[in-house]
């Protein structure tokens, strides 16, 4: 499973970073950086919460 960011939608609000900090980090310019793509089974819940928590619906999981 892979985590995918739609950078056309993302505005760097950062909720994902607080829910899954191993995957997401907003940098000083306010842009989201995907720290890793591959999701291990024990990481899935955190990434799913990040996907659900994104106000711009910019995140998805490719299964």
């Amino acid at each position: 499973m892979k985590c995918v960011v739609d950078y056309g939608k993302c505005t760097g609000l950062g909720i994902c970073e607080s829910l899954a900090p191993d995957f997401f980090e907003v940098n000083d310019d306010g842009d989201l950086e995907l720290l890793k793509e591959d999701i291990a089974p024990d990481e899935l819940q955190a990434v799913e919460e990040a996907v659900a928590g994104c106000p711009t619906e910019a995140l998805s999981i490719e299964r």
Binding site: G12, G14, E17, S18, P21, E25, V26, N27, D28, G30
Partner: peptide, 15 residues
């Protein structure tokens, strides 16, 4: 304020 790179690190700490 314009600290997008900082805010969520503190949210994590408060959690």
């Amino acid at each position: 304020v314009n600290g997008q790179g900082e805010i969520m690190k503190y949210r994590g700490q408060i959690m």
